[in-house]
């Protein structure tokens, strides 16, 4: 999967599972201020990502630091690269 494909998969999954506005799905969109998610949504975000990419997310600290949609993109791209290198 290319980086663009990863970003597209993330955005589509989040739009569907959180009923977000497609037009607001920009990488600098703030999850809480712009996309109107809250900290409780983060668990469901982890589940959505785990299902979409078939990996397990255990990086508690990194997840807690996520603030923008771009942070999610970067997290998944980095994790996918690590998995690819590891396999």
């Amino acid at each position: 999967m290319t980086d663009d494909e990863i970003i597209d998969t993330i955005n589509r999954a989040l739009v569907k599972e959180f009923e977000l506005d497609k037009k607001k799905m920009l990488s600098d969109a703030h999850l809480f201020d712009t996309l109107e998610l809250d900290s409780l949504d983060m668990v469901d975000m982890v589940i959505v990502l785990e299902n979409a990419f078939k990996f397990k997310i255990t990086e508690e600290k990194e997840i807690r630091e996520i603030r923008t949609l771009g942070d999610i993109h970067n997290f998944v791209i980095k994790k996918s690269n690590e998995i690819r290198k590891g396999s």
Binding site: K16, E17, F18, E19, D41, D44, M45, I47, V48
Partner: peptide
């Protein structure tokens, strides 16, 4: 609730 939470 959001669809993801409903489903969960």
């Amino acid at each position: 609730f959001r669809p993801s939470y409903n489903k969960r």
